[in-house]
Amino acid sequence: MSESKKDWIAFGDIHQSLKFVELLPGLEEASGVIITGDLTNHSPAGTIERIWDTISSRNKNILAQLGNMDRNNVTDFLKGKGANLHCEVRELAQDIKIMGVGCSIPTPFGTPSEITEEEMTRFLEETYARLGEYKQLILVVHDSPFNTKLDVIGNGMHVGSKSVRSFIEKHQPDIVLCGHIHEASGEDNIGKSRIFNPGMASGGGYVLVSIENGKLEATLKQI
């Protein structure tokens, strides 16, 4: 990789299954890793530590956030590592920033980190307000935006977050990385925003996010 190029590898919905980490190409050489959420299944003791150790053994520069299946101890752990992305802002390169909001809106399953649409809106807008100046933006959300190709469950219903969709419509981030709906992997657009759901990590999907000569690009990939 040239000095002017940075590649980040993004994935999510790990759910404690880590075999795919061994198979991800270019992980050691990447500038860093972005994890959209659902690292664990209800965060049993020692699990986030094991997941961290496995991924960081190949790349130590990790940005991650909790999903609806993770408990708050995941956020506490990530904060302790300086890696938390939930409700936080980072600069990946000059004029290129990244912000994250984890959790999901309510599901039928009563998972640990569900929030209302109103809370989702508040988290998104409060985090956005801390961005400051930028030219290009990556939004990392765990929940998929409503009424896209990326929030459709098996019966054809759209179950994504209306708050996430409204935020994207309003602020038009360049790249959106999401997950949550395992069966709806793919790519879609809302206005100029390109949105990616790589699906469940064990299925081998990931997104290659590249910054070269000040330009942000993203490509959906499969192991």
Rank of each mutant, 00 (worst) to 15 (best):
residue 9 I to D: 00
residue 13 D to N: 07
residue 13 D to F: 00
residue 14 I to R: 01
residue 15 H to Q: 08
residue 15 H to C: 00
residue 17 S to V: 10
residue 17 S to P: 02
residue 19 K to G: 12
residue 21 V to A: 05
residue 21 V to C: 04
residue 24 L to H: 07
residue 25 P to H: 08
residue 27 L to S: 06
residue 29 E to V: 11
residue 29 E to N: 15
residue 29 E to C: 12
residue 30 A to C: 13
residue 32 G to A: 05
residue 33 V to P: 00
residue 34 I to F: 03
residue 36 T to Y: 09
residue 38 D to R: 00
residue 39 L to W: 01
residue 39 L to I: 04
residue 43 S to L: 01
residue 46 G to N: 01
residue 47 T to N: 14
residue 48 I to K: 04
residue 49 E to L: 02
residue 50 R to N: 10
residue 50 R to G: 03
residue 52 W to H: 05
residue 52 W to V: 00
residue 55 I to V: 13
residue 59 N to W: 07
residue 59 N to Y: 06
residue 62 I to Y: 08
residue 67 G to N: 03
residue 67 G to L: 11
residue 68 N to Y: 03
residue 68 N to I: 07
residue 69 M to I: 02
residue 69 M to C: 13
residue 72 N to W: 14
residue 72 N to Q: 13
residue 73 N to D: 15
residue 74 V to G: 01
residue 75 T to E: 15
residue 76 D to N: 12
residue 78 L to V: 03
residue 78 L to M: 04
residue 82 G to V: 07
residue 83 A to Y: 02
residue 84 N to I: 09
residue 86 H to F: 08
residue 88 E to N: 11
residue 92 L to A: 04
residue 94 Q to R: 11
residue 97 K to S: 07
residue 98 I to D: 01
residue 99 M to G: 11
residue 99 M to S: 06
residue 103 C to V: 14
residue 105 I to K: 05
residue 106 P to N: 11
residue 109 F to W: 14
residue 110 G to P: 15
residue 110 G to Y: 09
residue 112 P to D: 06
residue 113 S to W: 08
residue 116 T to P: 13
residue 117 E to M: 13
residue 118 E to L: 15
residue 118 E to K: 14
residue 120 M to H: 14
residue 121 T to E: 14
residue 124 L to W: 08
residue 125 E to H: 15
residue 130 R to A: 14
residue 131 L to T: 07
residue 132 G to L: 10
residue 132 G to S: 11
residue 133 E to Q: 14
residue 133 E to M: 15
residue 134 Y to V: 05
residue 134 Y to N: 05
residue 136 Q to K: 15
residue 138 I to W: 03
residue 139 L to D: 05
residue 142 H to E: 13
residue 143 D to W: 14
residue 143 D to R: 09
residue 145 P to T: 11
residue 146 F to N: 12
residue 148 T to K: 02
residue 151 D to P: 06
residue 153 I to E: 13
residue 157 M to K: 15
residue 159 V to W: 12
residue 160 G to E: 03
residue 161 S to H: 15
residue 162 K to E: 15
residue 165 R to H: 06
residue 168 I to P: 02
residue 169 E to Y: 01
residue 171 H to M: 10
residue 174 D to C: 05
residue 174 D to S: 08
residue 177 L to E: 01
residue 177 L to W: 03
residue 177 L to F: 03
residue 181 I to G: 05
residue 181 I to T: 04
residue 182 H to L: 02
residue 183 E to T: 10
residue 183 E to Q: 12
residue 185 S to H: 14
residue 187 E to Q: 09
residue 187 E to R: 06
residue 188 D to E: 12
residue 188 D to F: 09
residue 190 I to T: 04
residue 192 K to A: 11
residue 193 S to V: 02
residue 193 S to N: 07
residue 193 S to Q: 11
residue 196 F to C: 03
residue 197 N to M: 02
residue 197 N to K: 00
residue 198 P to M: 04
residue 198 P to C: 02
residue 198 P to F: 00
residue 199 G to M: 00
residue 201 A to D: 00
residue 204 G to F: 01
residue 207 V to C: 03
residue 207 V to W: 00
residue 209 V to F: 03
residue 210 S to H: 07
residue 211 I to W: 01
residue 212 E to V: 09
residue 216 L to Q: 06
residue 218 A to I: 01
residue 218 A to K: 01
residue 219 T to Q: 12
residue 220 L to M: 09
residue 223 I to L: 10
residue 223 I to R: 04
